[in-house]
């Protein structure tokens, strides 16, 4: 393609010349904008393309483009956060949903807190009878912390997850503690027939009876009163 004899080659090619000119023009333009952006040279050589004035007070160049130094004007520099924002949000929400801290304390990692293997009773505010069951696992996830309870209702195994900070959960009570600390975090083996606990109804009824004994004569028939108190009840703690 490029092997045309020299004699026949045109000395000037208009097209290429125009193209070169255009490229140069683009180059000069881009150079101009770069000068604008840095605003290094004071407006000694007046640039016809852009409007720029040196401010008398601040001695800075004002141009048609707003040039913001990184810190002084505009957005203030945000100092790097030291705390985890997600954890902070969870704390805030927990404080809002659990002002007394009773629910947090009930599932904290302390001796007196509820643990897996304990029998818990959850009272729901929106109707239905309270659900009791063995706690198979505690999913600790900030505001989403939940417990898994398992029970048998009429020969059918039923498992329920409850969010402990849910406002609909009126109360969580420890009916019976496990005799020995469970050596697993999640007692999924309790679903197997060999380890299955079956119904916990008898434990719950025994616990109800014992509470009635503890109650004074003035508070007769008030078994549900503490349950519906709205604060994660801890009636079982007296054991």
């Amino acid at each position: 393609m490029n092997v045309a004899p020299l004699a026949r080659r045109p000395l000037v090619c208009l097209k290429s010349a125009v193209r070169q000119a255009r490229q140069q023009k683009i180059f000069s333009r881009s150079m101009a904008t770069e000068v604008q952006a840095t605003s290094k040279p004071p407006s000694r050589s007046p640039d016809r393309n852009f409007y720029r004035v040196v401010d008398k007070k601040t001695k800075t160049t004002r141009s048609a483009f707003a040039i913001y130094p990184p810190t002084s004007a505009g957005l203030p520099l945000i100092p790097p956060t030291t705390t985890n924002p997600v954890a902070a949000l969870h704390d805030f929400q927990i404080k809002k949903l659990d002002p007394t801290g009773a629910r947090t304390a009930l599932f904290a990692r302390t001796r007196e807190a509820a643990k897996v293997g304990d029998i818990l009773l959850v009272t729901h505010r929106r109707g239905g009878e309270p659900f009791a069951g063995v706690c198979l696992s505690i999913r600790r996830a900030g505001i989403d912390t939940a417990v898994l309870l398992r029970n048998h209702i009429g020969k059918v195994g039923v498992e329920m997850w409850f969010k402990i900070y849910n406002r609909n959960v009126a109360g969580i009570e420890i009916v019976k503690r496990r005799l020995k600390r469970a050596r697993r975090a999640r007692l999924t083996y309790m679903r197997k027939p060999k380890h299955d606990m079956g119904s916990v109804a008898e434990y719950v009824s025994a616990w109800r009876k014992s509470r009635r004994v503890f109650q004074t004569k003035g508070a007769k028939g008030k078994t549900g009163a503490t349950t519906a108190g709205g604060k994660g009840g801890k009636g079982g703690k007296k054991k």
Binding site: V158, E159, W161, K163, N166
Partner: peptide, 17 residues
């Protein structure tokens, strides 16, 4: 199969009926 309720609680039975 677990059925999730509006308030985040779940229920799961041992059989299909």
């Amino acid at each position: 199969q677990k059925v999730t309720r509006r308030d985040g609680s779940c229920i799961k039975f041992e059989d299909n009926a």
